[in-house]
Design a protein around this nucleic acid. Structure first.
Lengths: 255, 255
DNA sequence: CGATTCACACCTAGGTGACAATCT
DNA sequence: AGATTGTCACCTAGGTGTGAATCG
């Protein structure tokens, strides 16, 4: 799909709003069966907690799931129409990064602009002052794959019935992957993107393709692809919040 | 669906046979997109091995999977048409059974006709001479539920691509079950039945419902529903062939 | 007394980060 | 030296029959 980004969290609130004309930014020229579509990101506070530290996602040759899992609650679909749900991943910039020492003061969140090397720092400060640094221009873009939700296609009523979870989606750094996984470049930043596509029963529906889908990007889900965790705080938060990593927890404060 | 039983293993062999007229027993009056459908039972030799001993399937309150799992290889579908696949279970008679001593000579397979009590036997013969005896008329029939294959609906091409497995299907004896499981009466005999239903895009498609499906019954998959295994040979064969029961195996002769 | 239920040990199947080894 | 790979112990999640307890 073309790179149209709807404004997440904006637009009509949850639930269909009868009589609404599909106008305003991102809605014009859309089929009436998709223009009212709304998506609410689940586990938003967890995503934000990761995002404050600078989310990292592991990529492996065999494919690794995301954590947190990308899941949304949908509303505003036509209950009796067929939809395909899918995800893709957009490079956030054309840079390559590395984890290392910096001048401090900026925190771990955004990457520091510019690419000059910082001076070495006393060892005792190394941990807290480490951050993501630009290491050059991006590597050649990986094959731009998409991941279809395995329940696709399905009726709007079915998609809205419960939370839609993309827990089968896996990330890989293997450019020759033939398992259908999403291929990403390690040490590059990405923005997950979610698409609702109306299955158009009309003949020549290709000619209406541009108006038959609606896309959602949630900034708090952006991440750095890595082959091994760099920020130790990210590791600790993953261990604390991912049930499959329970084996690495120390004391258990509260359920 | 109505109780039409196709002859399993008969009809056109694997693969679509272009130009075939849909005639002969079980094919007349059927839509041309279903009349060529053929289903081959997978793991046939395992099913037959169980059937020779008298297959038993456990039913529990929470729901129990079948073993062997009912799986088929489909052919003869229209690759571009939509189909729904489903299963139901037909009582094989209107009798209730119990496991106990018999006169011997008949083997463990079929239930003994008549209901008179056999005389007691020496203890050392009890095991080999036990068999299923009629214990009276059937209990009131359980709610007649069906199990839709979770991938339904899907294109004929998708269904024919690989083996279709009903491993999510569960059997229960709880008449008030609200998990959508198949409800069966314990100590009653059943015949699993498999249905291929064409999704008819025509309006008023209900009026064509009788010609839009084709059904398959494989006699070697019939079984007795039980809450605990009665025939010790069945228990041993389950343990020997079900990977999840590996913990109960003694010596491992061969892979 | 036969039929059913339940907690349990023991599996399959697969998702974690740690860590040592290896690659570039 | 930094990035990547592969193996591993340790989890989650859930499918087995067992055998004691309970039901009717």
């Amino acid at each position: 799909p073309a790179a149209f980004l709807a404004t997440p969290g904006e637009g009509p609130p949850s639930g269909t709003v009868p009589g609404w004309a599909c106008e305003g930014p991102g809605a014009s020229g859309k089929n009436r069966r998709v223009c009212h579509a709304a998506a609410r990101l689940e586990m938003g506070s967890l995503w934000e907690e990761f995002n404050r530290l600078g989310t990292e996602m592991i990529v492996t040759k065999a494919g690794r799931r995301m954590f947190p899992t990308f899941q949304v609650k949908l509303s505003g679909l036509d209950p009796s129409a067929d939809y395909v749900l899918l995800m893709d991943f957009v490079p956030l910039d054309d840079k390559r990064y590395r984890w290392g020492w910096g001048w401090g003061g900026m925190g771990a969140r955004g990457p520091r602009p510019g690419g000059a090397e910082p001076p070495p720092r006393p060892r005792r400060y190394a941990f807290h002052s480490s951050s993501w640094l630009v290491a050059g221009r991006a590597d050649p873009a990986a094959p731009g794959r998409v991941h279809f939700h395995p329940d696709s296609p399905a009726k709007g009523a079915q998609w809205m019935r419960q939370i839609v979870s993309f827990d089968k989606l896996k990330l890989t750094n293997n450019l020759l992957d033939d398992n259908g996984h999403i291929i990403l470049n390690s040490m590059h930043r990405y923005q997950p993107r979610f698409h609702v596509v109306l299955v158009d029963p009309r003949r020549d529906s290709e000619r209406f393709a541009h108006e038959n889908f609606k896309s959602f990007s949630f900034p708090e889900t952006q991440f750095m692809a890595v082959t091994a965790y760099q920020n130790h705080r990210i590791t600790q938060l993953k261990i604390a919040s991912n049930p499959f990593a329970k084996g690495f927890r120390d004391g258990e404060p509260e359920p």
